[in-house]
């Protein structure tokens, strides 16, 4: 299984390199270190959100409320900063993480304790969170002039050629990789998505794992709320509208199986970077930004098709002997009919 994942990541790296080469042929300077750092910086927020989304998708769930969470948290933090300029930035960032985590916990609670399917629960909270952002702000914008310079400029401060926003993404990637590969929670994520029944017998609390996956996704969305508002220097209700689809797209492109249990941090990051490279290249090669939505839709479909073929060919079983002993695979009748 790890061989397939490595293959997927190598393939994505190759595609991204080919894309960058092709774009820089049309527009010299696209592949310069400064421009590449710029692309990474632009994609930072998508990368962070995709990592949270990945944790949720790993457990066979989906979080459609991330962008609404981002909007609400961003609005809350911006209003807090505008009303009380004295609050130090680290405290505001902690507040953003906490608000995001609480909103994520609401999703997680509904999925864990009440048993609402994740897609319905988060479809509901998607409208609720964004609506609450409207109620909170009364529909008003928080403008650049109302926010403090420290609040706005810190993520843009360049360190070694990359703004702090980009470094934040790198930090989050590092932390999430450690969580996924080196902690009990990380193993539980893979186990409860790969085979929930087996995970239960192995002593993994599947529901609780889902809950914490939603909390992680929410907290990262909250962090992105602050990052988004400071990056674009404005907070209003409709920020990041539809961005939840991009996070799902990044995961699907990165080879994270929507059936749960399969995926890697590298895949999600590369999936996000793939979208980021395309998004940044469109204006460079004179294509209207209105194309972006259709392109990401098409890429999602192609990626799902690709994932399904791979999962079917190699199977999703970790124990080969068990697979051999089993007389027939349970998917067999459906596949037979589809062919």
């Amino acid at each position: 299984m790890s061989r397939i994942l490595k293959y997927r990541e190598l393939l994505l790296v190759a595609i991204i390199i080919v894309l960058i080469a092709a774009f820089s042929y049309r527009a010299p300077g696209y592949a310069s270190p400064k421009s590449l750092a710029n692309i990474f910086n632009d994609t930072s927020i998508l990368i962070i959100l995709a990592l949270g989304q990945m944790a949720v998708i790993m457990t066979k769930s989906i979080d459609l409320s991330v962008a609404a969470n981002l909007s609400f948290t961003g609005m809350a933090v911006a209003m807090l900063n505008a009303a009380y300029p004295g609050i130090p930035l680290p405290l505001l960032i902690l507040t953003a993480l906490a608000i995001g985590a609480i909103l994520g916990a609401i999703n997680g609670f509904m999925v864990w304790k009440i048993g609402i399917p994740a897609i319905v629960a988060t479809l509901g909270t998607l409208t609720i969170y964004r609506g609450t952002a409207f109620v909170l702000s009364g529909g008003a914008w928080v403008n650049q002039t109302q926010m403090t310079p420290v609040f706005l400029n810190t993520p843009r401060m360049p360190v070694l050629g990359l703004p702090l926003l980009g470094w934040t993404a790198i930090l989050v990637i590092a932390i999430v990789s450690v969580v996924f590969t080196r902690t009990i929670f990380g193993r539980s994520l893979y186990a409860s998505g790969g085979n929930p029944t087996a995970a239960l017998y192995a002593g993994v609390d599947v529901g609780r794992t889902k809950f914490f996956a939603f909390v992680l996704s929410g907290a990262l969305a909250g962090l992105c709320g602050y990052l988004w508002v400071s990056r674009y220097a404005v907070a209003y209700v409709d920020i990041a509208a539809g961005f939840e689809l991009d996070t799902v797209a990044a995961c699907v492109i990165g080879g994270i199986s929507t059936l749960g249990g399969i995926g890697s941090v590298g895949g999600a990051v590369l999936g996000a970077l793939f979208l980021g490279v395309i998004k940044n290249a469109l204006p460079v090669i004179n294509i209207s930004p209105f194309w972006q939505m259709a392109i990401s839709g098409l890429v999602i479909i192609i990626a799902v098709l690709f994932n399904a073929r791979q999962e079917r060919r190699k199977g999703r079983l970790i124990l080969r002997d068990a697979a051999k002993r089993r007389p027939s695979r349970i998917e067999a009748p459906v596949e037979g009919a589809a062919a």
Binding site: G297, I300, V304, A338
Partner: peptide, 24 residues
């Protein structure tokens, strides 16, 4: 139905594709 992909993800994709074409 024919290829056997999960409908949630497929229709998230086509949702973006169809509206994206309208946007283009």
């Amino acid at each position: 139905a024919r290829i056997g992909l999960p409908s949630i993800v497929v229709t998230i994709g086509t949702m973006s594709l169809f509206r994206g074409i309208a946007q283009i």
